[in-house]
Amino acid sequence: MTLRPGWIEDAPELARAIGQWGVVKNLSRAPWPYTLGHAEAFLGAPHAPTEALLILAPDMSGDRIIGGIGLRPNEHDRWELGYWLIPEARGNGYAVEAARGLIDHAREVLRLPEIEAGYAVDNIASARVLDRLGFRPTGERLTTACMARGEPVETVRMRYAVPLASSPAPARIAA
């Protein structure tokens, strides 16, 4: 599995991957139907280095897009994890592996104290991924806009306390 930023050349494959109802219905900011134009606009927009990464997995013809993941500040100035996978890639540990990579980055580079995430109440698979990663419910249930569904969706909020990276041992000075 590889995580990398999306390139404009990825637009046709991204549109095919995310443009499935089983994917887009669980994303807050993706429209339905999701078109090539949407993929081109998304890939052409500026993103922070951790915000819009593609998840690629090898297949017979090379690497293919199986999902996306990002870590970005949300509207409450807290860092939020979001991800999606195509249906046929689910259940293989890709979401957990990709998220662990971003969590490691959050700990070692960004030095974040915590990360938030949310899932639609009807997306039990996402709840399981977040639980496996160590996210815990905050007790909050929010109504979140969902462009694809065209209506608000009840979401459960989760939080992960990021263990800080251990400091390296002080250097010894030879006498």
Rank of each mutant, 00 (worst) to 15 (best):
L14I: 01
L56T: 15
P87F: 09
V109F: 05
D63I: 06
D131C: 00
A89T: 08
A117S: 14
W79D: 13
V162F: 01
G19Y: 03
W79F: 15
L43C: 05
H105Y: 14
A48Q: 15
L27W: 01
N92G: 11
P33W: 03
P12R: 05
R72V: 13
G93M: 12
W32R: 04
G101E: 10
R149C: 03
I65N: 10
I103G: 04
P152S: 05
P49N: 12
S167V: 08
E40T: 12
G93K: 13
A45H: 09
G91C: 13
L27C: 07
P58A: 15
R172M: 10
R90K: 11
G6A: 04
L3H: 04
S167N: 09
A165N: 04
H76C: 12
M60V: 15
V129N: 00
R157A: 10
C146D: 00
P33M: 07
P73E: 15
A145Y: 00
R149S: 03
M1R: 04
G68D: 11
M158H: 04
S126R: 01
F42L: 14
P33Q: 07
E75A: 14
L112E: 09
P87L: 08
V156N: 01
L53C: 07
Y94F: 15
E151W: 00
D104T: 11
P168Y: 02
L130G: 03
